[in-house]
Amino acid sequence: MTEIRTPRLLLRRWNDDDLVPLSEINADPEVMRWIGDGSVRDLDETAGDIERWEEEWDDEGFGLFAVELLASGELIGAVGLTVPDALPEFAHEVEITWRLGRSFWGQGYASEAAHATLEFALQDRGLDRVIAINRAGNDESENVIRKLGMELDRNATHPVHGHLLQVHTIDLTEYDA
C-alpha cells in the first residue's frame, strides 16, 4: 500500500470511509468552480471519481491520494497524479492536481501534499516530467504551482468548456527536493 507522510498529512489510497467526506467537498461550489465546467458533484459522481482514481493506481502505478490530517484523521481532499485523458492534447503527460475542502485552504496543506506528490512522481515513480494544468484566474492554484518550482510552458484552450488553461512543467533536471 502506497502511503506518504508529511509533517502534518497522510497521503494514502482510498477507502469506503472517504466517500461521504469527499462528496461534501465536491458539493461545495467554491471548491468546484475551477474544475471542469465548475459543476458540483453528487455522491454517485464522487464514487465514480474514487473508483476511477483507484483504477489509475492499479493501471499506472500512480493516482490521486486521499489526504488526511495526521492529528485528527480527517479527510481534507485529494492530491496526486493523473493522466489528463479529458484533454486529448495532454493525454501523453502526467499531471499533478489537488482539491481540498474550503476550510483547509490557506494553511499550506495543498503545497505540502503537492511537494510530497511531486517527489513521489520524480523519484519514486521515475517520471521524467510532470505538468500542472491551471485554469487562468485560479490564483491560489497558481501560487502552489510556483512553490513547486514549475514554469509556465504554454497556454491552451479547454476543448469542451473553452476556458483558458495554463500548462506548467517541471522535469527531473529542474527539480530540487
Rank of each mutant, 00 (worst) to 15 (best):
R129Y: 10
V130K: 06
G77I: 01
F120E: 03
Y109T: 00
G80Q: 03
E55M: 09
V67N: 03
D85I: 13
D139F: 10
A66F: 11
R146C: 02
R125I: 03
V130F: 12
G73E: 10
V130M: 14
G108R: 04
G63F: 02
D58C: 04
F65D: 03
G126V: 13
E93C: 10
H115A: 09
F62D: 01
D85R: 10
E119A: 13
F62C: 03
A132K: 00
G101S: 12
K147M: 02
A71E: 15
G63Q: 00
E56D: 12
E93V: 12
K147R: 11
G77S: 04
E142K: 08
V130S: 05
V67Y: 05
Q123F: 12
L100Y: 07
A121E: 00
D59L: 13
E140M: 15
S141N: 13
G149N: 08
F104P: 02
L127E: 07
I96V: 14
S141Y: 08
E68F: 13
D59H: 06
L122D: 02
D49L: 08
G77P: 03
A116L: 07
E55R: 08
F65M: 11
G73Y: 12
E60K: 13
G137F: 14
F104V: 06
W98M: 01
A71V: 15
G106K: 07
E51S: 12
L64Y: 00
K147S: 04
W53L: 09
E95L: 09
L75M: 15
E142L: 14
F65R: 04
L127Q: 05
W53Q: 05
F104A: 06
L70W: 08
W98F: 10
W98R: 02
A91Y: 10
P88M: 07
A132R: 03
G61D: 09
A113K: 04
I50D: 01
A114Q: 00
E60V: 09
V79I: 15
V83Y: 11
G126I: 14
E89G: 09
A86L: 15
N143D: 12
D139L: 15
D85E: 13
G137A: 13
E74Q: 14
E112N: 03
W98K: 01
S141G: 11
L148M: 08
E54F: 00
W105G: 02
G77D: 00
V67M: 06
A114T: 06
R135V: 15
I50F: 00
G149I: 08
E51C: 08
I96P: 01
R146N: 05
S141T: 09
E112P: 04
E56N: 07
E89V: 14
I145W: 01
E68P: 05
S72W: 10
I145G: 02
G73K: 11
R125F: 04
R102A: 14
G73A: 13
K147W: 03
A132C: 12
P84C: 05
I50S: 01
G80D: 02
N134D: 11
A86K: 07
L69C: 07
Y109F: 15
R129C: 14
R99C: 05
A91V: 14
G77Y: 02
E119H: 07
N143Q: 12
D128N: 12
G101T: 13
D128R: 12
F65Y: 12
G61P: 05
L64R: 02
E54Y: 00
A116S: 09
S72T: 15
G61W: 10
E60H: 11
A91K: 11
A91S: 15
G80F: 01
L127G: 05
R135M: 15
A110I: 08
L81T: 04
